[in-house]
Design a binder for these strands. Sequence first.
DNA 1: CGTGCTAGTAAGTTAGCACTTACTTACCAA
DNA 2: TTGGTAAGTAAGTGCTAACTTACTAGCACG
Lengths: 186, 186
Amino acid sequence: MTPRKTGEQRKAEIIETALLLAAELGPDRITAEAIAIRLGISQPAIFKHFPRKGDIWDAVIDWLARSLGRVWTESTTDEPPEQRLFALLDAHFAFIAAHPAVPLVLLSPELQARHPPLRQTIMRLMALFHTELRQAINAGPSPPGNADQRAWMMLSLVQGIAVRWALSGHAFDIRAEGGELVRLVW
Amino acid sequence: MTPRKTGEQRKAEIIETALLLAAELGPDRITAEAIAIRLGISQPAIFKHFPRKGDIWDAVIDWLARSLGRVWTESTTDEPPEQRLFALLDAHFAFIAAHPAVPLVLLSPELQARHPPLRQTIMRLMALFHTELRQAINAGPSPPGNADQRAWMMLSLVQGIAVRWALSGHAFDIRAEGGELVRLVW
DNA sequence: CGTGCTAGTAAGTTAGCACTTACTTACCAA
DNA sequence: TTGGTAAGTAAGTGCTAACTTACTAGCACG
């Protein structure tokens, strides 16, 4: 029998593996068996920890929302005000670079169709990111004009860069190129 | 028996329906049966026209690539040079507004995993769009600096807007808001 | 008017994948 | 030491969706 682990350990491993595989296959093509093989356990063992497959997505999304929230708020602690926006965006890019599946999970229409709760979380996360961006924009030496709209613009730009990075097969350094493009706009 | 149509007519209908359903369910969740029901014919009839399901995607992607190419080149005919960029982007947004599934099909990692040829077409299309953007940028009263990078920035912004529009359930007017954001950046 | 072609149908077959059942074994606590 | 709990397994079940087979029927043309 395979080495036994505690439920909490296995749950964490399953979540981690789901994110890993999501980057390779697309989030909606992950099977319980694929996760099990990757972890060296049998397929039904997965369902011991997450009775329905949707529960895995609940857990992944929960982890994602927590992590992103933490990344955003912690990035803006003690920067000089005009750097707050860049620090926020850099932290975001760094997180995506470390977890390439993040944009795929958040943006997958297939997963949203199969798993409706995802949609709400995404809208909440986008609103939260928008708020953080707006605050960072207002904190800096802002050009005149609509900070709200500028924040939406930055949000779209960041999402677009992330999507392009995923499509290209991670062919460029998203943190470096993202930072450049963001500064170019500003 | 259902009214008979020519093969060409049916093929066109199937492609159109696939795009319609892609916007509702996500591209990788479309079934041959869903298309058949929508068209009022039986499921095997689909396979008369497209022996493998992947053939439908080949046709959809081909239509998409042609249409986008046409939209881009035809938008830049007789504008005053400084308006060329905005005309190009407006044409792009208008096309997406008319065919909401376009960004989903192009960006679906599930579909890419299932149907590898898609990936190449996407990269080609992105490169083409980038070229068009760069030319439009160079044609206008360009600020100093890297037109190449500006074109990537615009491309990312446009993709980000399209993705956000799709995620929001088409909750805003992409042509109007896209135009505003693009002008804000410029 | 009939013959060949092609769009269509009903009723399969097969494969993949979520999930179940019935059992086994590791591990901790009384 | 032992007995309950929880992690694990092998071998299913059932559903969904791609694709097949064998047949039927419109339609253009000689």
